[in-house]
Simulated assay, not measured.
Amino acid sequence: MSTLTVRLLAAPEAARLLRHAVREHLGPDGHPDAELCVTELLSNVITHLGAGAPVTLRVSGSGRAARTRVELTDPAPRTRPAPRRAAGNDESGRGLALLEAVALRWGVTEGYRTKTVWCEL
């Protein structure tokens, strides 16, 4: 099983780069939901830690694999994602609901000075 690893600073323009990297890694039969999950996980980091936070994306598996695992690690182990219910007019608050809708499962792993939010597709 191959693994894609990308380290960068969280920024809105990084979402496009990460989606492209995921698409290249998973190949033509890739998993579009993986691109969605990467975008939502990166958006959470930008919203809660701010642009410029260092992140590491890991994608395990390939487009042909039975399961694909997406992980995004950031330097804030105590800032944990919590699903919320967005009202109809809210412009944010749906990211984790989208993750729950497309992922088989998801969770958070706390490391030494880091946190990894992951999902399996």
Rank of each mutant, 00 (worst) to 15 (best):
A21H: 09
R7S: 15
G95V: 07
H48P: 07
A86P: 04
D29S: 06
P54H: 06
P77I: 10
H20C: 09
A15D: 12
A76D: 14
L18H: 01
D29R: 14
T79W: 07
R94L: 10
V22E: 03
C119H: 02
L42D: 02
R67S: 15
L98R: 08
H25V: 09
L96G: 01
V102Y: 02
G107D: 00
P75Y: 04
L9M: 09
L36I: 08
I46E: 07
A14D: 09
V117H: 01
E100V: 02
R16H: 15
L8D: 08
G50L: 06
L99H: 02
S92G: 12
A15T: 13
L96D: 03
L104G: 08
R113P: 03
G95M: 09
S92C: 13
R69L: 10
A21R: 12
R80S: 14
G52K: 04
H20K: 15
W118V: 00
K115I: 07
A76F: 08
V108T: 07
V102L: 06
L49W: 07
L96A: 08
V117W: 02
T114W: 02
A65N: 11
A101W: 05
V55M: 03
G111F: 04
V70N: 01
L18N: 04
R23I: 03
S92I: 15
Y112R: 04
G95T: 11
G30N: 04
D29Y: 10
V38Q: 00
S43R: 12
T68C: 12
L104F: 10
G93A: 11
K115C: 09
A11M: 06
R94V: 13
A51M: 13
N89T: 14
E120I: 00
T79V: 15
W118I: 00
P81G: 14
E71P: 11
A101L: 11
H25M: 07
G107Q: 00
E71I: 11
A87G: 15
C119W: 05
L96P: 01
L18V: 05
A51S: 14
L42F: 09
G107A: 02
T73G: 06
S62F: 12
R7I: 06
T5Q: 15
L41Y: 05
P12T: 15
L4R: 05
W118Y: 04
T5W: 09
S2N: 12
A51T: 14
T47F: 06
A10D: 07
A11W: 07
G107C: 03
L121W: 00
P81S: 13
